[in-house]
Design a binder for these strands. Structure first.
Length: 402
RNA sequence: GCCGAGGUGACAGAGCGGCUAUGUGGCGGACUGCAGAUCCGCAUAAGUGGGUUCAACUCCCGCCCUCGGCUCCA
């Protein structure tokens, strides 16, 4: 199986650290609001990856964090004048409901940032000890990127490149040290923790490094998220972890391109910012949404349109009516071509997904197979064989109703 | 300034060095009391200039154009 590694910018053969086992960490939602359809593009891609690895015989240990302490969650709680937990618990629940709707398999662990404050404090202290971090006058703790020998190697960015751009402005501050710990701030209201570092709260980048270390150990096989996380989030998480352990943070980095709506970037001002709920309210099936999110290769921008949703809906209906038809199959003769077609379907399906999880040829093979048999008289025996095959492949696609 | 993606028929969107992609829409037909669904058939293609080749939409080079990222972000 080949996967595109962001770090090398090449497709590489996938070989996990330990045979038969995959350790995977994916960046989860910030529970300040309902997750939008673009978030789910990434999560569905990761689900496909996980399902494919599982089918390939790997035992996958998957950790996905829940970011429940950050500017946005705090902002939301302040505006609604409720406790932080009231906001984050509600949206976390909504997130899991949405995962179920899209038939996304659960991770093994969903650690919350708020429950790992102690570990993040410890991490900051260790980094100070190692001289990889420093304390500012106001009590902030920054990671010193000049101490990281390969900072920028994941994203391909050299801090110098930004220097030129930034110097055009006044607020230029180089190098781009990033914050590990923020001292208590008036803006945060009552949200802070009393720790050995003083009162404050953690910075976002500490979170993934800390929880990955705790639940997966010093190194993992796959770290994944949306492209926007390549820099700075994953670059920083990598720098933190590697400064601490001296070991490679992750062997592979997989990043999903963004979803756009009608050719435009999703944004609230353009009023094209959709949550999964918004879309399902229009009456389409969750399976059709999943099929759209699945259908475009993860490294290409996915152009989401309602026209496409209609086409997707029709495809799901075609699949469902075919399955219904199978239950009534009672032809006398068995098909002579079926066995060969099943083998070809499986082979095409596997070749396609083994090639950096390319879904298009796999889906094409899947639906072409259905189209070939939907108008044929099928025996009961053949119907069983067909259904078994479709179900087997759907353990990866997840678009059939159970 | 730096890094990256892409230009295929009305639209969306694949694969492939020679063989009809496919879907939506359109057109013609079948079926149906009408509609819908379904089925059969038809049309429309490869930004631009060169190169490699017996053969290029597919490989190589130049040009044009579009788009994305560069410490809020999946």
């Amino acid at each position: 199986m080949k996967l595109h590694n962001t770090r090398s910018r090449k497709k590489e053969s996938f070989v996990p650290m330990k045979k038969g086992q995959v350790l995977m960490y994916t960046c989860g939602p910030t529970v300040h609001d309902y997750a939008h359809i673009g978030n789910f593009r990434t999560f569905v891609f990761q689900d496909l990856l996980k399902r494919w690895l599982s089918r390939d015989g790997y035992k996958v240990k998957h950790v996905m964090n829940i970011t429940d302490v950050d500017e946005r969650t705090i902002e939301r709680a302040k505006r609604k004048k409720v406790r932080l937990a009231d906001v984050t618990e509600a949206y976390e629940k909504a997130f899991f409901d949405d995962l179920d709707a899209l038939n996304i398999n659960r991770a093994n662990v969903y650690p919350r940032a708020s429950e790992h404050i102690g570990e993040m404090v410890e991490l900051s202290e260790k980094l100070i000890e190692k001289d990889s971090a420093f304390v500012e006058k106001d009590g902030s703790i920054y990671f010193d990127i000049t101490k990281s020998h390969n900072y920028g190697s994941l994203s391909g960015k050299r801090p110098r490149d930004n220097l030129r751009r930034k110097t055009k402005r006044e607020d230029y501050d180089e190098p781009a040290h990033f914050v590990l710990w923020k001292p208590r701030d008036e803006m945060d209201g009552m949200i802070y923790w009393k720790t050995s570092l003083g009162e404050g709260r953690p910075g976002w980048h500490s979170e993934c490094a800390t929880m990955a270390l705790k639940y997966l150990g010093d190194s993992m096989d796959i770290h994944s998220g949306g492209v926007d996380l390549v820099f700075p989030h994953h670059e920083n998480g990598k720098a933190i972890s590697e400064a601490l352990t001296g070991k490679e943070f992750s062997k592979y980095y997989l990043h999903a391109e963004h979803l756009i709506i009608d050719g435009q970037k999703m944004s609230k001002t353009l009023r094209n910012h959709f949550t999964l709920r918004d879309i399902l309210k229009k009456g389409c099936s969750p399976a059709a949404v999943r099929l759209i999110l699945l259908g475009t290769h993860y490294r290409k921008k996915l152009n989401f349109t309602f026209k496409k949703l209609d086409a997707s809906e029709k495809k799901i209906k075609r699949l469902e009516s075919f399955i219904k038809m199978l239950s009534g199959a009672n032809a006398k003769k068995n098909s002579k071509t079926l066995e060969g077609d099943v083998l070809k379907l499986k082979r095409d399906f596997e070749d396609s997904l083994n090639n950096d999880l390319n879904p298009a040829p796999a889906l094409r093979a899947f639906f072409a197979f259905i189209d070939k048999y939907k108008n044929k008289d099928i025996s009961q025996k053949d119907a069983k064989r067909i259904l078994k095959t479709l179900k087997e492949l759907d353990s990866v696609l997840g678009i059939m109703r159970a």
